[in-house]
């Protein structure tokens, strides 16, 4: 019997979560479709004028991304809590924050990445000038994992509650506001001819901070919830 390694447990957890998502396609498709629907309603509801749309394009996409990630988060630890998988994660001889991080990555790959891939297309629909595309995608690449991992803490805290309703959004949205501000500012700065690098660096710093701290906080929250 070979000795388990933390790396093998990390990869196995990542693979397991990706596999579950692939088999339950609704979990991937719902937030993705929601994102597209929300964004495409803006030109219809506000104005199809491109002068108007380009002003709000970055903000609309970022807000829709935030809302879509709220929607996808609800399923993050729920089935694991209900079928007892969380208990086994807590009893693993591997560090829990590492396994939690693997779950976060898997969740981002199926919920964050598709949204980012399709965002230039929607940006085109909202008449975002071409010089904003790269910054938009870069800000989403840096910002969505931050939102996902902050949400993971909130989900871990509330997973034991029977009906949590809006409490998840109430916890997550205020923490995500800085990401929204810097994400849209970066794009607007790029459109105004300035360099977006300062804001992207701030988003990068937030990402580094959440990667190092959020899995630890999520692990602690899970221990409380399972208790």
């Amino acid at each position: 019997m070979s000795q388990a390694s933390a790396g093998a447990a990390f990869l196995a957890t990542l693979k397991r979560d990706l596999l579950i998502s692939l088999k339950r396609r609704n979990d991937i498709l719902n937030p993705f479709m929601f994102f597209i629907i929300v964004v495409s309603l803006f030109p219809i509801g506000i104005s199809p004028e491109s002068a108007m749309l380009r002003q709000i394009a970055a903000g609309v996409i970022w807000i829709a991304v935030l809302l879509a990630s709220m929607l996808s988060m609800d399923s993050l630890y729920r089935s694991d809590y209900e079928d007892g998988t969380l208990e086994q994660l807590l009893l693993s001889s591997m560090p829990l924050y590492l396994l939690v991080f693997a779950k976060n990555i898997a969740h981002w790959l199926v919920s964050g990445l598709p949204v980012i891939v399709v965002s230039p297309l929607l940006a085109y629909m909202l008449a975002l000038p071409a010089e904003g595309y790269l910054t938009l995608v870069a800000s989403l690449l840096l910002g969505t994992p931050v939102v996902g991992m902050l949400g993971s803490i909130a989900v871990a805290l509330t997973v034991g509650l029977g009906s949590r309703g809006l409490i998840l959004a109430v916890i997550t949205v205020p923490m995500s506001v800085p990401v929204l501000i810097f994400g849209t500012l970066a794009v607007q700065n790029a459109l105004a001819g300035g360099s977006p690098l300062g804001y992207l660096a701030l988003l990068g710093a937030m990402l580094a901070l959440t990667i190092s701290l959020a899995p630890v906080a999520t692990a602690a929250a899970l221990r409380i919830s399972v208790n």
Partner: peptide
Amino acid sequence: YIGHRVAVNRVLTPLENLRWSSRLHHPA
């Protein structure tokens, strides 16, 4: 520990379930 909730995911197959749970302790 095998509790009331047996930590077997319903969408995965038995093989996939055990592949994962064994990696948490002794890879098989």
